[in-house]
């Protein structure tokens, strides 16, 4: 009964946005979902408020991703039309590079197993091993090993993509 949600919000907001962004890949949506996560979390008084918020965020992101996948089927047609009409704005080189780098990381993350990905994002979000363990359903003792492996997989997957891109010129 003593959760100081304002404090949890202040100290974890950025991490939650970061976490959500890697799931929905849209900054504005990530911020909006982060707010929504906290708004929903306020309704509870969990033992571990920060882990709880991440949990709510993960659920919202899951629903969101499903929704987006369904919408994409409709939108892909519209997108083709738009680019054919030349309406997309020209992108400066640096921005393009950043976009490519982000796309590679995204692809590398997507190539990982669901649990590895979740583990990495929660680790990056600053959660403790206990919190991570309860989120992904591992024993705490297994978190370190799984994490070490997942990180290596991410790095390897990314480097392989980079090599491929370089080869393609």
């Amino acid at each position: 009964m003593n959760t100081d949600w304002a404090e949890v919000y202040r100290s974890s907001y950025q991490e939650v946005v970061r976490f959500l962004h890697r799931k929905v890949w849209d900054e504005d949506r990530a911020r909006d979902l982060a707010q929504e996560s906290f708004a929903r979390a306020l309704e509870s008084d969990p033992d571990d408020p920060r882990a709880w918020v991440f949990r709510v965020a993960a659920n919202l992101a899951r629903d969101e991703v499903r929704l987006v996948v369904r919408r994409k089927r409709h939108l892909s047609l519209l997108k083709v039309e738009a680019s054919a009409a030349g309406t997309s704005a020209p992108t400066p080189d640096r921005e393009l590079e950043q976009k490519e780098a982000e796309a590679r990381v995204r692809e590398a993350l997507d190539s990982l197993g669901e649990r590895d990905r979740e583990l990495l994002l929660l680790w990056d979000g600053g959660l403790t091993y206990d919190e991570i363990a309860s989120r992904v359903g591992l024993a705490r003792g297994a978190v370190g090993t799984t994490l070490a492996r997942a990180k290596q997989r991410l790095v390897d997957a990314h480097d392989a993509l980079e090599d491929k891109d370089a080869a393609l010129g």
Binding site: R22, Q98, L120, K151
Partner: peptide, 12 residues
């Protein structure tokens, strides 16, 4: 490496 890669994909 993992941390910096994840930072690439971080929002502002």
């Amino acid at each position: 490496r993992a941390r910096s890669l994840l930072a690439v994909a971080a929002p502002s």
